[in-house]
Amino acid sequence: MNTAALVLEDGKVFRGEAFGATGQTLGEVVFCTGMTGYQETLTDPSYHRQIVVATAPQIGNTGWNDEDDESTRIWVAGYVVRDPARTPSNWRSRRPLDEALTEQGVVGIAGVDTRTLTRHIRERGAMRGGVFSGDTLTSVDEMRQRVLESPQMVGADLAGEVTVAETYVVRPAAETRFRVAALDVGIKTNTPRMMSQRGIETHVLPAHATIDDVLAVEPDGFFLANGPGDPATTDGPVALTKEVLDREIPTFGICFGHQILGRALGLGTYKLRYGHRGINIPVIDVATGRVAITAQNHGFAIEGEPGQRFDTPYGGAVISHYCPNDGCVEGVRAQDVPAFSVQYHPEAAAGPHDAAPLFDEFVNLMEARRAQA
């Protein structure tokens, strides 16, 4: 057995065995409460530079297939599990999970008491850590020093590391009803797929796109994708969003894109203690009181209170949604320009699907704008 260790920046150590690639990896240690959808989690660019702890005790039962990736690669910095499945059992499985991790050089650790680890993160907050195995497994002091020398998530500008190199287009299977310019700061594969089901032709633009790039698409709408890092570093995307709002192009943002829109409307952002990550997080719509169970992955949030109304350079706006667990802002809606955003994932491939109709709301915004033209 190849032993391994997870070392946190506060000196806490969790021992286990190597899972996936052998070596060293550093990142922010966070926990994800989803009981399914690990393949989507691992390939979500929003998890770039994070060591993900699976709170579900057994991981890998359905193996790894060739259809459910949310991007072209695994993005997590490392993976921590308690009880990896010995043999996957699913008709779509093509290889075991640990084989996929090994192939892509993702260093993991298994056999960890993930319940104790999760409680530790909840009490102390998400923090930097490292997984070490093989030749990198040395003294605790030396491993901890490597962790302390690694970059923090606050101030991390990561969108440029996950964005597409050049624009690509996802066309609908049927007739094209609308054309959308989507800013890729970490977009997932299922997002343009869900828009294509609604007759939307999606032009996915690099994170450094300009207003001229957006206007060249002749878009009916503008989409701000999910992504990793500190939203305080997104001055370029925020400036672009302001130019889009000046032109009153219907705008929809999710997750990281929600934080970008929030900044464009004049709101600040801050780091959460341990974030929201999972597929079972409740959100309340302030206007209706309706509760949606959502998929989320964010360690930062925008400032505000549920139902708060505030002035922006584009007219009034309101905090439209919040999480009842901690009061965190989960949605923003502009009242005088066609723009809204949510902190959660309406495109969640592993579910739940309570928020999927938000894409229909985006369509309604574009229809209304077209009718006014």
Rank of each mutant, 00 (worst) to 15 (best):
M1S: 11
K12G: 03
G23L: 01
L26W: 02
E28L: 15
F31S: 01
G37H: 04
T41E: 12
T41R: 09
T43F: 04
R49H: 13
I51F: 01
V52Y: 11
V53K: 00
N61Y: 07
N65G: 09
D68Y: 12
I74D: 08
A77N: 04
A77L: 09
A85E: 02
T87R: 10
N90S: 15
N90A: 15
L97N: 08
A100E: 07
I109Q: 01
M127H: 12
F132D: 00
V140Q: 13
E142C: 07
M143C: 14
Q145L: 09
R146F: 10
R146D: 11
V147M: 04
L148Q: 15
G160K: 04
V162T: 05
T167S: 09
R179D: 03
T191S: 10
S196G: 15
I200D: 01
L205V: 07
L205F: 03
P206H: 05
A207T: 14
A207H: 15
A216H: 05
V217S: 04
G227W: 15
G236M: 07
L240R: 09
L245M: 12
G253Y: 02
L261R: 12
R263W: 11
T269G: 02
G278P: 08
V283W: 00
V283Y: 00
D285G: 05
V286S: 01
A295R: 10
G315I: 09
I319M: 06
Y322F: 15
N325D: 13
E330S: 14
P338C: 05
V342K: 09
V342S: 06
H345Q: 12
A349T: 11
L358N: 07
